[in-house]
Design a protein around this nucleic acid. Structure first.
Lengths: 308, 308
DNA sequence: TAAAATACATATATTAAATGTATCCCATAA
DNA sequence: TTATGGGATACATTTAATATATGTATTTTA
């Protein structure tokens, strides 16, 4: 059976006449007449009785009409669904992010995204780089946001922001208020770090040892939150992403120590599966990331380089 | 959306490759490639990621595939249903018949029909000619079987059998056994007839009055059964269709009086709506009617003229 | 490391399908 | 009778689908 023929049959059945179907389909009456007869030939049974005043379905035609209606209703539903996907009125945005990015950088942006595209099913998963890379490769994530990454043929990687690590201390700390601090001095203070394997710890250690600086490591803690709590309690200083402490700085429970001769920066990476076409829902998210309403609009990265 | 394109998309999605789809559709690989790209252009979104080893559905493609599967499954179901209708493995046979035909002529035939075509929904309605004609005109009956009929432009009418009316009496009747009975003699006997308006009564009266015979009418009864019961009880004689008394003759509760100079015959008509194509189920029934397995096979009409 | 194989894309020519125009037929209504 | 409305047919034309030949990228094999 040819579904083009079926469409013509459907139109004739619903309008009750060949000429009616023709005008509905924007083709000529003979075209409909011919196609319909051809279709009846294929079916092997007449679908209409030809009456002087028009066409009347046979029993066979009645049966077929029900199927035709189902088919074209489904087609219409498919078109509607595609239209939704096209304008991101539905779809899925599945993101995997490292702890820092997922907790401090994305939530505000995702909230605005969700507000603008309420039909999209947004999923944010916080996990380490390895898990995120694996899930990207398994095609169960649309985008990954990580600090480091392991080179991988099938993954596309792009620096989308620069993370600045700042030295924090309790407001009552002896260094607080100092504007002439030098990196060496920090080594006299107990320095709290993240656990082995953390991206944050890796970049800190790499930067400092490149300058032959060796901080006194006392504790290693498993999350940015734990670090902040300990530092606020006066346990020492730490190097953390400035995004993780925005709230505490405003609240005054922590302070940043400006170090004159030290800047620790690291690129943040956006990862995606090579050759994978993004859905419209994903494209809209990437748009927001790149536009003013992206990270800048979130008020967190005033002078972010606008790399993709 | 073009459902031809959708079929190609469907094949690519299910085989996972353009070339696979091509061989499944018995067309060349470039044909599939081109149609698919065209389809993606119409949709406005890519449906597949092109990987070196084949094609992978995008999120949009996954959504569309579900609809495509529904559509083509419905199409397949329609094809199956049509095939059933084609071999009368399903369908409807809706017959309206007058009392005599419906009660004595059709049941045996319909039983064999139902046995041979168990999927067909057989409906037999017994009603008078007027009702049957109206239902045929309303297209709610496939066939009508009546004695008389009222000429009607939209109804096609055909004599399908000749009904012989025979004179019956109780076996103990004084005429029983006589082989030289003449029509005049019958007028001395009380004759039971059907009610006014009955086709049977009409033909009897017409035939007899044409010969200037006037039977003594005592009772008029509303059904062949009532007539037979009364005659068997010795209430008189009657003229009835020979089909209605086959059982009683065999049982010996009634006997036929052979009248040397009287034959009362009437044509039986098959009616159908003009321009109406019969379904296969109806065609198969008409076949049985015409073949040896028809009324003859039913053992009721040994020498029936084989008119349609 | 080069050759072969696999898989999809592109270009051009060809074929098949669908459509349009003109005309005819039939039944009905004015 | 002539219009009129609805469908069928014939033939020409346009559009769409397809094939052949070839190209590119990648993977596998020798």
């Amino acid at each position: 059976m040819n579904l083009n023929h079926l469409a013509i049959f459907h139109a004739v059945a619903e309008t009750g006449s060949v000429s009616g179907a023709a005008s509905r389909l924007f083709i000529s009456q003979p075209a409909v007449s011919k196609q319909l007869r051809e279709f009846e030939g294929v079916i092997g049974m007449p679908l209409f009785d030809r009456l002087p005043k028009g066409m009347r379905l046979t029993a066979t035609g009645e049966v077929l009409l029900v199927f035709a209606q189902r088919i074209f209703a489904t087609e219409a539903a498919a078109e509607r669904r595609l239209a939704e996907l096209r304008d991101a009125r539905s779809g899925r945005l599945s993101i995997g992010a490292s702890m820092t990015i997922g907790n401090y950088l994305l939530p505000k942006l995702l909230a605005r995204y969700q507000q603008r595209y309420p039909g999209v099913d947004v999923q944010l998963e916080i996990a380490n780089t390895e898990v995120i890379q694996q899930k990207l490769l398994a095609n169960t994530l649309d985008l990954g946001f990580t600090e480091g990454f392991v080179e991988e043929e099938d993954l596309e990687e792009v620096v989308f922001a620069l993370d600045q690590l700042v030295v924090i201390a309790a407001p009552g700390h002896r260094f607080a208020g100092r504007t002439d601090l030098r990196a060496e001095e920090l080594c006299s203070e107990p320095c709290l770090l993240r656990e082995q394997g953390s991206g944050t710890r890796a970049v800190v250690e790499r930067t400092l040892s490149a300058r032959d600086l060796h901080p006194i490591s006392t504790m290693s803690l498993g999350s940015p939150e734990a670090i902040k709590q300990a530092v606020a309690a006066g346990a020492g200083i730490s190097l953390v992403s400035r995004w993780t402490v925005a709230t505490e700085l405003r609240a005054g429970t922590l302070t940043v120590l400006p170090v004159t001769d030290l800047t620790v920066e690291r690129p943040l990476h956006r990862l995606s599966l090579r050759h994978k076409h993004p859905s419209r829902a994903v494209e809209r998210f990437l748009d927001m990331l790149l536009q003013d309403e992206g990270l800048n609009g979130a008020g967190l990265v005033p002078d972010l380089p606008k790399t993709i």
